[in-house]
């Protein structure tokens, strides 16, 4: 009986995934061709989505370039250097709370602060900075967890050999924590690619190839949303969805690949 229930739950989970992905592929795959992916956007017909792909990649790269070093350094500070006490507990509580806030709130903040106050305007950079704030807690949390799993014996072993704290961190602790840190970065990528509300409010919806990171532009998710909203073209939205799924898959696989490479390089 219990066995059956467990089996059924597992089956249901897989089935839902298969149905959703299957439905999107079924609806959208007919639109997928070279021109659709690499063509420039035009409002008539289904238009190319190359500008949106480029915009999406821009936001991923810029947000991660900013969030990764800050996140890792913060986690290292909290875990390895800070005196564990009230202040650190408060910072941890704050980062944990930040992960739970709906992204539209971040979007509103970004629209007020980055777009208006800092006069960045609706732009890729304003969206990327907003996304940085969204993924920062994710990177800090996962990095902290990864650092916690490094056996204290490594630390002791290294320090007992007359190394400095920094050498120990750089040569022993961070390399052993690397797989965990990378999985945090992968999670963040998913978060960035999947985000729509916050980007909508900060990067705007201009459906054209961005001239620079200061241009307003449209990411894939925003495009998918607008297409459904404006024209009700489910097929087009599904085709965009397929591209999104493939991008996430490629990013995940390459991150796993890099993490394996890094681990091998250790010895």
């Amino acid at each position: 009986m219990l066995r059956g229930l467990l089996w059924f739950s597992a089956f249901l989970t897989v089935a839902v995934l298969v149905i959703i992905v299957g439905y999107i592929f079924y609806k959208g795959f007919r639109l997928i061709n070279f021109d659709f992916i690499f063509g420039d956007y035009s409002p008539v017909g289904h238009g190319g989505i190359w500008p949106m792909i480029v915009t999406t990649i821009y936001t991923i790269v810029i947000s991660l370039l900013i969030a990764t070093p800050i996140g890792i350094l913060s986690a290292v500070y909290l875990q390895e250097y800070a005196k564990q006490g009230r202040l650190v507990r408060m910072i941890r509580f704050a980062t944990e709370s930040l992960t739970g806030i709906p992204s539209i709130i971040y979007g509103l903040f970004g629209a007020v602060f980055f777009v208006t106050t800092l006069k960045l305007g609706m732009s890729i950079i304003a969206a990327s900075l907003t996304l940085t704030i969204i993924v920062l807690p994710v990177i800090i949390r996962t990095t902290e967890e990864a650092l916690k799993t490094v056996p204290p014996a490594y630390r002791e072993g290294s320090l007992a050999l007359g190394t400095t704290k920094l050498q120990t961190l750089y040569k022993v602790i961070l390399p052993s924590a690397m797989p965990g840190i990378l999985s945090g970065i992968i999670l963040s990528m998913g978060r960035i690619v999947g985000e729509s509300a916050a980007i909508f409010l900060t990067a705007g919806t201009v459906a054209a190839m961005p001239d620079s990171i200061f241009s307003s532009a449209r990411t894939l998710t925003v495009h998918s949303y607008l297409v459904t909203q404006e024209s009700g073209d489910i097929e087009l939205a599904a085709a965009v969805g397929i591209v999104l799924i493939v991008i996430i898959l490629v990013l995940n696989l390459s991150a796993t690949f890099i993490s394996k490479k890094l681990n091998k390089a250790d010895y």
């Binding site: 056996p151 014996a153 490594y154 002791e156 072993g157 290294s158 320090l159 007992a160 050999l161 007359g162 190394t163 400095t164 022993v172 390399p175 052993s176 250790d266 010895y267």
Partner: peptide, 21 residues
């Protein structure tokens, strides 16, 4: 402390080799 620890080595209860060659 660094100089002290290069002069006074230590072997621990459980082997604690690093994940390296």
């Amino acid at each position: 402390v660094i100089k002290l620890r290069t002069k006074v080595g230590m072997v621990f209860q459980k082997p604690n080799l690093f994940p390296m060659s």
